[in-house]
């Protein structure tokens, strides 16, 4: 696994308003960088830029690297950056198993099926391959969505408020599941809630075109 690195990122809205200026950071495999800031400060725009899906009207400068590989000019599908959003986006015309198979890369029909079954067992959802996603609870859906992202074999994980739609009881469970599952990957987590941030993570705060990186400190945050 390689670190995810961003060099001198600047984002400007079509009106000329600056969202981010000269932002640089690096996330090592197995570590988490939490991206915080007020609404509209550009957190989700940074994620969109990383995945190559930013609004074309936003002016961007800067480079993104995965190890030695520059990602800027690669299409989204070649970047291998796994993305999880607040909404789980399980495809409603596919079963749970088909959703996971959709994420999985390569393999024969048999091995693909086996890997999906094993992943579901690991996620505590064994035997749910043929279930309609609509019949799952919020927590189950969140786990399936994360497993689908991980099965696509990403080199880094981008999480855009993935826990905010869950109730309090589920949140802790899904957080633990996520950090365990993503233990080997560089993770960029966008969140408003400091409780989402795992121990040892650094916090990157952006606001009004300024930014700062600090170790997680509950009191200062």
């Amino acid at each position: 696994m390689h670190p995810l690195r961003v060099d001198n990122l600047s984002l400007h809205l079509p009106s000329g308003q600056c969202l981010v200026q000269d932002l640089s950071f690096s996330i090592e495999p197995g570590s988490v960088l939490a991206l915080m800031g007020p609404s509209g400060s550009g957190k989700s725009s940074i994620l969109s830029w990383l995945t190559g899906t930013a609004d074309s009207r936003i002016t961007t400068h800067g480079n993104v690297w995965l190890g030695d590989k520059k990602l800027n000019h690669l299409p989204t599908e070649k970047r291998r950056l796994g993305l999880m959003l607040q909404q789980d986006y399980l495809f409603p015309h596919m079963t749970v198993g088909d959703n996971l198979q959709f994420g999985l890369r390569g393999g024969t029909r048999q091995t693909r099926r086996e890997r999906v079954s094993q992943s579901l067992v690991d996620a505590g959802l064994g035997g749910m391959e043929d279930r309609d996603p609509a019949t799952l609870s919020g927590g189950q859906r969140a786990r399936v969505s994360l497993v689908r992202t991980l099965l696509s074999d990403p080199c880094a994980l981008l999480l855009d408020e993935p826990f905010s739609g869950l109730d309090t009881a589920l949140r802790e469970q899904i957080r633990r599941f996520t950090w365990d599952a993503a233990a080997q990957l560089p993770v960029l987590l966008v969140t408003h809630d400091v409780a989402d941030i795992p121990e040892g993570a650094k916090v990157l705060t952006i606001s009004d075109c300024t930014h700062s990186v600090e170790p997680l400190n509950i009191q200062t945050v």
Binding site: T51, E77, G82, L83, F91, G103, L158
Partner: peptide, 9 residues
């Protein structure tokens, strides 16, 4: 859907 599908490769 396009965004999720493309990030899945």
């Amino acid at each position: 859907s396009l965004r999720i599908g493309r990030t899945l490769g």
